[in-house]
Design a protein around this nucleic acid. Structure first.
Length: 475
RNA sequence: CGCGGGGUAGAGCAGUUGGCAGCUCGGCAGGCCCAUAACCUGCAGGUCGUGGGUUCGAGUCCCACCCCCGCAACCA
C-alpha cells in the first residue's frame, strides 16, 4: 500500500494559536484526508516546539515552571484537533523523552567533521537573552530594552552548512526536493547562491537556563532550538529506536510550512539529513500569511484572530471553508470578519446549504419511497482532485461552487414543483438526478468540509430523505 | 544595486503553461415562488499602476519607472 507522511511545522507555545496556524493545520488536514480517501496509508503529524528560551521567559513572567507552562499551552494547540476537526495521527511535543533521544541520535548521526566547536562573539542583551546584530540596534542600544548590549564570547558547536551548498542547490533545482510554489523555490535558490554560512547549533547550558536538549557527549551545551525542532519530523516516528513507524514512513512526503520558516526547512533541514545520511523529504509546500484587516497580526495591534472563537460562533466547516477558499494557497491573504460573514452567507448558506435544503424538501414533500440514484456519467468533479494535488484549494471550491450554481439553475429550469402535478415520473427523474449530483458533490467535499459532507451523505442516502435542519443558517 | 510579494469593475479578490477579461458583495431590470427574504436570467461598470519592447496576439513574457507591503538567518 502506498504510504503518505505529511507534517505541519510545530509552533511555539508561548502564544495562543492564531488563525495562521489554523490555516496550516487545515491545509495539511485536507491533504491527509484526501490521501486516505484514495486508500493510501497516511500518517499526519503535528505538534509543538517547546525548547525555546522564550518559553522559559514567558513561564517566569507567569511565575510558573517552564514545563507546567508548556503543558498548559501545548494542550491548547492540541485542542485545535477537536475545534477544527483535524485528523492528525500523532502530536509530538519536543519536551518528550522520545524527542530528546531522537534529536540526540540525529546529532550523533551527523558526519563528525560537520559539527565543530568555534568561539562566537556577539552583542548580547541580558534583558532579551538574545544576540543582536549591530545593525539591529538603535543607536547602539537594544530596541526592546534601550540598554547597551554586552559583548560576550562563548564557545558553541557549529554545523558545516557551507559544505552542502552545491548539493542543496542541485537537489532543489532538480525538484528532487521539490519546493512549492516555484516563487519560493527561486527564493531559496537565490539565497543558496549568495553563499551559505555555517551556523551555530548550540548554546551554553547557562544561557539556555538548562532548558532544551543537551548535546550528546557535552553536558555543558544545549542544542540550538531549530536543530532539535526540525528533528521532530523524525522523532515522532520513534527514530530513536528506528521503530516501525520510522521504517514505514520516513522520508516525509510533504512538509507544510509558512513562509517565515522556509530557510530552516529548505536549507538547514535537508543539510542536516544529508550529513546524517538520511533520505530527504520529497516536497515542501509553503503557504502565505494571513493578514488581519490589511495588517500583520500582532498583539500590540490587537488584531489577532483566534480560531477557537470563530469556530464557536460559525462552526468548524465554515472556518475551514474560508481558509481554503478565500485564503490564497501560496500568497498572503487578508481576513476580516465582514468578509468572512459575507462569504459564509453567499457560498455556504445561499449556495450549498440552500441547494441541499430545497432539494431535500421537494423530495420529502412528494416522494415517500426511495429515490433511485441514477448513474450520472456526465457529472464528475475530477478536476477537484487535480486541484488538491496541486495545492490549489481555492480552485477546487471554484469548481464545486460552479457546480452548485448549475444545479440551482437546473431546478429553476425543470420546475419540479410543477412537474409533480403534471408528470410525476419526470419529477422523480429530475430529483433523482439532483440527488445523484449532490451526493457526488458531498463526496468531493469530504476532505474539505468533513462534517458537512457526512451530513449530506447521510441525508441523501437515507431510506426517507428529509429536509432537516439548515446546514449553514444565514447570519 | 540585499531578497520577495502586490497594484485587475464602486468594494474585496481569482486569473496554471501568452489566445474572445472572470468571481463574490453592491447597483439596475426581469423571472420564479420548491428553498435559509434564499434561487435563476439579463444589464451597467475595467485604457488589467505608468512608459517602452517581443509577438499574428500580452493582465500573462522582457526592460525601465512610480506607489504599497513583507522578509533580512529562532514568525504559521
Amino acid at each position: 500500500m502506498k504510504k503518505f507522511y505529511i507534517t505541519t511545522a510545530i509552533p511555539y507555545v508561548n502564544a495562543r494559536p492564531h488563525i495562521g496556524f489554523a490555516l496550516e493545520a487545515v491545509q495539511a488536514d485536507v491533504l491527509a484526508r484526501y490521501r486516505r480517501e484514495l486508500g493510501e496509508e497516511v500518517f499526519f503529524l503535528t505538534g509543538t516546539d517547546e525548547n525555546s528560551l522564550k518559553n522559559v521567559q514567558a513561564a517566569e513572567k507567569e511565575g510558573i515552571g517552564p514545563q507546567m507552562f508548556c503543558d498548559r499551552n501545548a494542550k491548547i494547540f492540541y485542542d485545535l484537533k477537536k475545534a477544527l476537526n483535524l485528523s492528525f495521527d500523532e502530536f509530538i511535543r519536543t519536551t518528550e523523552k522520545r524527542h530528546f533521544l531522537g534529536a540526540q541520535k540525529l546529532w550523533s548521526a551527523c558526519r563528525q567533521e560537520d559539527i565543530y566547536k568555534k568561539k562566537y562573539k556577539g552583542l548580547y542583551c541580558v534583558g532579551c537573552e538574545t544576540f543582536y546584530e549591530e545593525k539591529e540596534l538603535i543607536q547602539g542600544k537594544c530596541p526592546e530594552h534601550q540598554t547597551a548590549p554586552e559583548v560576550i564570547e562563548e564557545e558553541n558547536y557549529f554545523f558545516k552548512l557551507s559544505r552542502y551548498q552545491e548539493k542543496l542547490f542541485k537537489l532543489i533545482e532538480s525538484d528532487e526536493y521539490k519546493i512549492i510554489p516555484s516563487t519560493r523555490k527561486n527564493e531559496v535558490l537565490s539565497f543558496i547562491k549568495m553563499g551559505l554560512k555555517d551556523f551555530s547549533i548550540s548554546r551554553s547550558k547557562e544561557r539556555a537556563h538548562g532548558w532544551g536538549v543537551p548535546v550528546p557527549g557535552d553536558e555543558s551545551q544545549i542544542m540550538y532550538v531549530w536543530f532539535d525542532a526540525l528533528a521532530n519530523y523524525l522523532t515522532a516516528l520513534d527514530y530513536n529506536k528506528e521503530g516501525k513507524l520510522y521504517k514505514n514512513y520516513w522520508p516525509a512526503d510533504v512538509h507544510v510550512i509558512g513562509k517565515g520558516v522556509i530557510r530552516f526547512h529548505a536549507v538547514y533541514w535537508p543539510a542536516m539529513l544529508l550529513s546524517a545520511g538520511l533520505p530527504l523529504p520529497k516536497e515542501l509546500f509553503v503557504h502565505g500569511y494571513i493578514t488581519s484587516g490589511g495588517e500583520k497580526m500582532s498583539k500590540s495591534l490587537g488584531n489577532v484572530i483566534n480560531p477557537f472563537q470563530l469556530v464557536e460562533k460559525y462552526g468548524a466547516d465554515a472556518v475551514r471553508y474560508f481558509l481554503l477558499k478565500y485564503v490564497h494557497p501560496f500568497e498572503d491573504s487578508d481576513f476580516t470578519i465582514e468578509k468572512f460573514e459575507e462569504v459564509y452567507n453567499a457560498d455556504l448558506a445561499n449556495g450549498l446549504g440552500n441547494l441541499v435544503s430545497r432539494t431535500a424538501n421537494l423530495i420529502e414533500k412528494n416522494f415517500d419511497d426511495k429515490i433511485d440514484i441514477g448513474n450520472d456519467r456526465e457529472f464528475n468533479l475530477e478536476e477537484v482532485d487535480k486541484s488538491i494535488e496541486d495545492y490549489q484549494f481555492n480552485v477546487a471550491f471554484q469548481i464545486i461552487n460552479h457546480s452548485i450554481s448549475l444545479l440551482d439553475a437546473y431546478i429553476d429550469e425543470e420546475k419540479p414543483w410543477e412537474l409533480i402535478k403534471k408528470d410525476k415520473d419526470q419529477a422523480k427523474r429530475v430529483l433523482s438526478r439532483l440527488t445523484d449530483r449532490i451526493l457526488i458533490i458531498a463526496k468531493k467535499l469530504k476532505p474539505f468540509l468533513p462534517q458537512t459532507a457526512e451530513k449530506i451523505l447521510k441525508q441523501f442516502t437515507a431510506r426517507k430523505i428529509k429536509k432537516g435542519e439548515s446546514l449553514f443558517p444565514r447570519i
